[in-house]
Design a protein around this nucleic acid. Structure first.
Lengths: 154, 154
DNA sequence: CATATTTTGTTTCTTTGTCAACAAAATTAA
DNA sequence: TTAATTTTGTTGACAAAGAAACAAAATATG
């Protein structure tokens, strides 16, 4: 297996495992809410005033998915939609008090996960950690570049 | 944002971007097959003789998902199921010639992706790359440990 | 050995997402 | 300014995966 393949596999399974762990905890602490609901609440909480298209881009899903999910969250009283006078086409969202409550519970959970994994960061060489972040950033930059240049013939 | 949060975000978006890029190419070159079909074919090709449970564990999905997908791949003539005389409960799979064909096309595509991103590995400090792999491995080991110890009270 | 428990795979129902078609609004071009 | 084009959001049909209930087979326990 090449370095690259190893890298990819490690990355993939790492996230799979995190999701497995996190999901179990979510089930327990936020049982009334589906994972995707919480995820969307989190994104809106962190990106106040984002419209459907921006949320879709940020969450790497389609606008259709966001449209449906926000509709559901509105129905459940967790977010509100609003529009601007300048632009009657775009739709923006904010958390309601109930949504804010869910948001904060989830944030607390996130901090617990951070605690759970802190030992990995603490016991590693700080230079190795910094190098890892730097490498991931370089890789991300490369892919951003690739995404902007979508094949020949466009 | 803490180092840990930065790390997680980089990881997540990196995989999101890869998937975005890869999916576009898949659509073009293996248009007759759904991503999940190709993914399962790839796993079976690399793990001959794996049963439903093993495939599910390896792919981080449920047995139900594997059961359904393998059924579909059999219907489409891409894999075969077989059983052993010693164990009439477990079900194993192998690729057919048609499945092998898809498998190889996908492998070729994977090698192209490797080429696409090789520059990232080439232009980085080899020590940084090695350090990154090491760190990811350490993190994976930590999570394996956490997954084996599923909370208090079990 | 006989029975209880666990493992394995399948199925049904639900959740989540994509895709494609569409309408309304905004932007660009003529 | 009017008309063509693009952007934005919504919807419906469908695809993929999860959870839970189940039956059959294997394993453990007495």
């Amino acid at each position: 297996m090449t370095t690259q393949q190893q890298f990819y596999k490690s990355l993939k399974t790492l996230l799979d495992k995190m999701q497995l762990l996190d999901q179990a905890e979510m089930q327990a602490k936020l049982a009334d809410f589906k994972p995707a609901e919480v995820h969307t609440i989190q994104y809106i909480g962190q990106h106040i005033g984002a419209n459907v298209t921006a949320i879709a881009a940020g969450m790497y899903v389609t606008r259709g998915a966001v449209s449906k999910m926000t509709k559901r969250l509105i129905r459940r009283g967790l977010i509100e939609k609003y529009q601007s006078v300048e632009n009657k086409k775009e739709v923006y969202f904010r958390l309601t008090a109930a949504g804010q409550e869910v948001y904060e519970q989830h944030e607390a959970m996130d901090r617990q996960h951070d605690q759970r994994d802190q030992v990995v960061f603490d016991s590693a060489d700080p230079k190795q950690v910094a190098g890892t972040l730097q490498f991931l950033q370089a890789y991300n930059d490369h892919l951003d570049h690739e995404l902007q240049r979508p094949k020949q013939g466009d």
